[in-house]
Structures are given as structure tokens and as C-alpha cells.
Design a protein around this nucleic acid. Sequence first.
DNA 1: CTCCCTATTTACTCCGACATATTTCCTGTG
DNA 2: CACAGGAAATATGTCGGAGTAAATAGGGAG
Lengths: 251, 251
Amino acid sequence: MPDADLTTADENTKQGEEARGPGRRLHGAIAHKLGTAILSGKYAPGDILSGEVAFAEELQVSRSAYREAIQVLTAKGLVASRPKAGTRVLPRDRWNLLDPEVLGWAFAGEPDIEFVRSLFELRAIVEPAAARLAAQRRDKADLKAMKDALAAMRRHTLTTEAGRAADRDFHKAILQATRNDALLTLSASIGAAVNWTTQFKQRARALPRNPIPDHVKVYDAIAAGDAAAAAEAMNVLVDLALEDTRSSMED
Amino acid sequence: MPDADLTTADENTKQGEEARGPGRRLHGAIAHKLGTAILSGKYAPGDILSGEVAFAEELQVSRSAYREAIQVLTAKGLVASRPKAGTRVLPRDRWNLLDPEVLGWAFAGEPDIEFVRSLFELRAIVEPAAARLAAQRRDKADLKAMKDALAAMRRHTLTTEAGRAADRDFHKAILQATRNDALLTLSASIGAAVNWTTQFKQRARALPRNPIPDHVKVYDAIAAGDAAAAAEAMNVLVDLALEDTRSSMED
DNA sequence: CTCCCTATTTACTCCGACATATTTCCTGTG
DNA sequence: CACAGGAAATATGTCGGAGTAAATAGGGAG
């Protein structure tokens, strides 16, 4: 049972607009709290969060707020509610792990290293193929977006937030060039995951090598329309990230 | 604006448990209605669904029900609500297209053929790589699950629902053998999409070729632990589906 | 004539109570 | 002793109202 009160919910009412924090609404804060609890394993699949009124009292909020939070969790496939039976945590394979918010919850506490590995493995599968398609379908605007992102990466290093944002922009530009909405959505999730990992572990040694030349190789191949070279160049990039993840697993 | 009343919501109260219909709850029905409206383009990104009370009256439901529905849409990244500004439809790149429910909404009306193509393209990228991993990591239980699914596919043909379910089970067993939760979640979405397409267009000519031998080749390669052969065999499978999608685009 | 400050309108957010459906337990019968 | 039917208990689903934050429009000053 959650013993902590919801004093953390007070902060979100203060910060106004587009905060990325625990949730800018009351029910958002509750969803964050419950979501992290589920993702961290505090509530295992099959457990029932019985007692709508009990939880509402526990969290010092009205039943409506608690109910809206449950609605969010239900929408993401984490729980399912049935009258009398209570709210049950669904099995993992029903969870929508690719949801950016769920990803945030997964990385809020101690992220499961196996899950991080699976995400980078997925990235290693998708991005080279995306680079291949981008090489075939990119237009001038796409190339300009990639070029701008590269320039920004050179100005700021990857140790700064601006530099990491430029890195994300570069990959996003590639995904946009694929003219594939499903891929684009997927990349948004993966990008968020990568962002969370870098934010979680601020390890300085994470950049053992200058990433710019590898990125330039990807760009050149896409600009030249060489699909095979683009896929191979991107393969080098993501394999480096995958290796980095594997090495950090041994810590 | 939605002119139809929500009499369709009555049916969901009757059917009890795990119905796959428009929504087994009232707010679920509203979310379905609004979700399909957004996915079909009836409400374009940037449009505001202003008037909580107006919509609630329009739909003949209470504000709470409408509000819960909006909460679901918000959780899936389709809309964002702010005081005074109203509820605004977010740009497409914020949408969680991989959410099974969103996929259902996309296929509820006239599915966008470009989007269907992008989904099958994603499948063509992911599944061969998944087969490769499965060949390296599968154990006896995985192989048994695949074998059982194959047997079920032989018993029922793909023209029946049971046969298609067996097909999904086969692919799911492969994805489970990858030991990759992110891939598994993704395959659930893709499987739902494939299911929706077959359900949407009941074209008899969609099966020009006996799919069993191709599936057996995938199974044999995975059982043998031959990663390259597994990837190639799966490639044949998904390329056939992709070609089928492309040909149906010309209708 | 333009810019800034203020007040009003507007629409979302939160709250507490009522109605309803379902599960479980108990009792009676075969 | 086992099974079926009914009643009670409990959680979910629904409803209308009050509070609050924000955007727009209007007025005043520069």
C-alpha cells in the first residue's frame, strides 16, 4: 500500500504550462505515482488495487481525481477495472511500453536494465532500416534539416542538453524522410527513452569517441541516395550505443 | 459536429466482460466516437473542441463521461486540454499511432492507405530482425508454442478467424522468443493492425498462395538456430504481405 | 496611433453524492 | 454432501455544482 501522502502533487499546481514533470494536473500526479509504482514492480501483474474510496482517502484526493488517473492507466493498458472485482494490474504483454509517458514512468525509479537493453536493441533494428528508406525518399528539405542538426551538434557538444536535442533532431529528420508515420511515432518513443537514459545516468565517460564523423557518414550516404551505405553507417552508430548500454549493464 | 445521438452506447452496458466493440463503457464509447472522428480527419490538428458542456449536451451524456473520454484521448496524445483555450487536437507527430486502440480507431472508418502501407513497411523491418534474434535465443517452450500455432494454422485455414488467430499466435511466439519486451509490445500493435486490415477488407483473393510452407521454413530456421536463414525466410513472408498491400492500394 | 495594463468572460479542473451493476456468500433443496 | 438460486454488500459509473486559471477585449496612457 502507498504510505506516502501526495505532497508531491502540490508542486504541479504551481508550475503552469508545459512542464514535463510528474504531471501538471492532480490526476496526472496520481497517474504518475501509480504508474511508477506499477512499472517499478511495487504492484505486480494480477494484483488488485481494490478500494476506490480507500485509495482516494489514502492519497487525500477525491474519488474523481483517482478515477481519472485510473482512466489514464487503463488507456495505456496497465490496468483494467471491473465492478466489484476492483482494478487489476494487467500482465506485462498488455502494457503499452512504447507510450512516451509509460517510458517516463519506467525510467522514473530504477530502470530495469533488461528493458533498456530491449529498447536499444529495437533501435538497432529500426534506425538502420529507416536510414535506408530515407536515402531513397529524402528531398531537399529533409537534407537541410539534417544539415542544420549536424551543425548544431558541432556547435554544442553532446555533453550539453542543446547538443543532445540536436542529436534527436538529426535522427528525427531521418525518420521524417522515410515518409512513414508509424516509424516516426516509434522513433519518438525511442528518442524519449534515449533521452531518459542519458538523463538518468550522467556518466561523463559515455562519450568515448567523437560521434560527429559517424553522423556525417550517415548524412553523406543519405544525401548521395546510397541506401546500402546509409544503412551500414547508421548500423555503426546504433551498435556503438548498444555496446555502451551493454557495458553499463556490468556496473 | 456530431449529430448522431449516442444510442450505440446502450449496447455496451449489456455485454459484460471483454467485448471488443466500440467500448464497453459509456466514456469508452465517447472516446471511440471522438477518436474515430479525429483519425478520420473530421477534426484536423489545431482544431479546438471547445465547449465541455456543449459537447456533453450534444452527446446526451454528463460532463464527467465526456471528461473521462477526453482523458483517454489525452493519454494517447491525440488532444491536450487547457483552461480557457479548450481542448485542442495535437499535431500528428504527437499521436500515439502504435496504441492498439488508436489503431482500431484508424481502421474504424476508411483507413488511410498510406498509413496502412507504413505499418506493413514497419512490419517488414521488424519481423525479420525478430526472427533472427529468435533463432539465437529460443528455447524448447518457444518452439513448442510455434509448433502448436503451426498445427492450428494447418487445421483451420486462414479464411477463418481461428486460423488468423493461429497466425497471430505464431508470430507472437517468435516475438516472445526474442526476450525483448519492446519488440513484443510492438508486435502486438502490428498484429492488431494486420487483424484490422483483414477484417476490414474481406477479400478472398488475398490468399493467392499457400502460406504454410513459408511459415514452416521460418520455423525450421529458428529451430535450427540459423539466424540468417530465419531472417531471410521471414523476409519472404512479410514481403508477400507488403506486396499484397501495395496491390490493394491500386484498387 | 500604438502599446500596455486591467478587468471580465470563459472553459477546464476538482469535489461530493446518488444510482447501478456485479460478485460473493449464505441458505435451502436435491 | 453438493449444487443452485437468491439476497446483501461493495465498488464502479454517473451526475450537477463550485472554484480557479487563462485568454481576450477594452480602456487609458505615452
